[in-house]
Design a protein around this nucleic acid. Sequence first.
DNA 1: AGGATTTGACCCTC
DNA 2: GAGGGTCAAATCCT
Length: 234
Amino acid sequence: GSATILHRVEGGGNVRTMPVAVSPDSGRGSASSSHGTSRRRDRPHRSSIRVPVPEIGNPDLPPDDGHTWRKYGQKKILHSEYPRGYYRCTHRKLYDCPAKRMVQRLDADPSTFEVTYIDHHTCHLSSTAPSLVPVPPPSSLPPADHMDDVDHLMMTTVTPLSMGLRTQGGIACSGGGIQGTASGDREAEYAVSQMADEMFNSRCTGSTSSNIMDLIFLAEAEEDRRAASVGKSQ
DNA sequence: AGGATTTGACCCTC
DNA sequence: GAGGGTCAAATCCT
């Protein structure tokens, strides 16, 4: 089994969707504070990923991506058999981390979770073992405005380079195979699927998945550059 | 006791 | 008005 990354970018007008259906989510923004102030005005970047239910452990548990999440809500979604769970970063207060995710089991495929990530972790380097430094140095994280680019890439593609990075990162948990000589998006799609799959099943390595997220971002940035160059050439 | 989860209500967008 | 996202009190767990 492999996860499929869906790409949904808002605000750019350049919505890119993977072959598999996208969540019916209409893309409403979300914001906090229910005291009369405007909610859902901002439209944070969102990205969806499909993750198979882990073979080991409780299949009802949402996938573990290496970050610590605190559940703040659950909602029955219309026409969906399974409820959607709402999570935010445990370190939200500590690090003012805006990261959120929504987890929902697919009605058509109960063995798969669809996980929608909203915003990025600012507790990036300290998700599992928070340090006293909430914000990582620029050398390890792209600048904030750069994050936007990376973010919308979250749903696009990941290059073979990223896979290489992964390997260097010490993730050697691979299960399935990348079938792949396919070109372009297809190859990338497999790569992402594989990565996501491992990402959420990385228990077998015990490695810190936040590093994986790092790699994903790096890979996406790289892909962005490639896409940009392709765009220019066309 | 403190943190996490549950759950109903509230509010916003479409 | 419907549906979805968040809040916050109540409850549970460690």
